[in-house]
């Protein structure tokens, strides 16, 4: 057992657990944040994606001992039901979610991607950026549309 101190969604927390526990399990079991989902458990599907110091990573392959002192943002930290982020609102408006299992990971990936660009992305660019996130339901069309819609809104917002 080790005590691990790190930031989740801006709040510092201290958790005592095995350092070989995955961050995903820590989030879901110790921190009560069940937004991030486990699907494949080996980096293939992206449903567990969280942001580590601003960059999307798979929390199913990140070990608790490695996140000591680091900054983690999960889907819960991107927006709340009362105060939704433009990317979350766009997913709803475009109907980009069905069973919802992939959605939290996609929201984190898409938000990190939108943070890193300052233009309206083309479909190929979005596909490239979200290549690590699988969805078994939607067929992707609406997800791509939602990311474009969010990008458009964020750009308009920045210009105001």
């Amino acid at each position: 057992m080790k005590t691990i101190d790190f930031f989740i969604n801006g709040t510092e927390i201290s958790i005592t657990c095995s350092p070989s526990k995955t961050l995903l399990d820590v989030l879901r079991e110790d921190a009560g944040l069940t937004g991030s989902k486990e699907c494949c458990g080996k980096g293939e599907c992206g449903s567990c994606t969280v942001s580590l110091n601003g960059l999307p990573v798979c929390s199913c392959l990140l070990l608790a001992g490695q996140v000591h002192g680091q900054n983690i943002v999960t889907v819960e930290g991107i927006g709340t039901p009362e105060n939704m982020d433009p990317i979350q609102q766009a997913f709803i408006d475009e109907g980009a979610t069905q069973c919802g299992y992939c959605t939290p990971g996609l929201i984190v990936s898409a938000r990190s991607y939108l943070n890193s660009i300052g233009h309206l992305p083309g479909l190929d660019e979005i596909k490239q950026a979200l290549g690590g996130n699988l969805c078994r339901c939607t067929g992707y069309t609406k997800i791509l549309k939602a990311v474009q819609t969010a990008a458009q809104r964020l750009l308009t917002f920045r210009e105001l």
Binding site: G43, P56, V57, S109, S112
Partner: peptide
């Protein structure tokens, strides 16, 4: 190599 997540890790 992989996708964004793998390239970041």
């Amino acid at each position: 190599v992989g996708a964004a997540q793998m390239q970041n890790m």
